[in-house]
């Protein structure tokens, strides 16, 4: 993993989480802003997937379990899709909160992925 990218990703996922939860609590239905923020988090995760594939080839290998890392990454990649799909089906403010919680969960999961990659030992 690339440290600055990971920090950026966690920061944006957490910010998107706060944004969507606040928007939802202020009775905002899922819209361009909340869906866009969630989409940005998903995009960053796709970037992380690319980094995870390339990094070991250029000498940046995980210290921990690569399988566990990918389980986290795949689940994280699925979350915005699930939350976003739900937000399209049930368009009320709670769907906006759901988007935010998915982003929060991703922030936590990326922190955990970073621990697996850099701290955890086999």
């Amino acid at each position: 993993m690339i440290y600055w990218y990971t920090v950026l990703e966690v920061a944006i996922a957490a910010a998107a989480g706060v944004l969507c939860v606040v928007l939802g609590l202020f009775r905002t239905k899922p819209g361009d802003l909340s869906m866009g923020a969630t989409a940005l988090v998903e995009l960053l995760l796709l970037g992380q997937l690319g980094i995870a594939i390339v990094a070991p080839l250029v000498g940046n290998s995980p210290t921990g379990s690569i399988i566990e890392f990918y389980i986290y990454l795949i689940v994280a990649l699925l979350l915005p899709l699930l939350a976003g799909f739900w937000a399209l089906v049930d368009r009320d403010r709670w769907s906006t909160v759901v988007l935010g919680l998915a982003c929060f969960a991703i922030a936590v999961m990326v922190v955990r992925m970073n621990i697996i990659w850099t701290v955890q030992t086999q």
Binding site: V75, L78, L79, A83, D92, W94, V97, V98, L101, A102
Partner: peptide, 18 residues
């Protein structure tokens, strides 16, 4: 009309998957 229950469900879903 699940309403706020949807928030509960997504947390359950994340925990279930995790």
């Amino acid at each position: 009309s699940l309403g706020i229950g949807r928030v509960l469900i997504i947390v359950y879903a994340i925990l279930a998957i995790g």
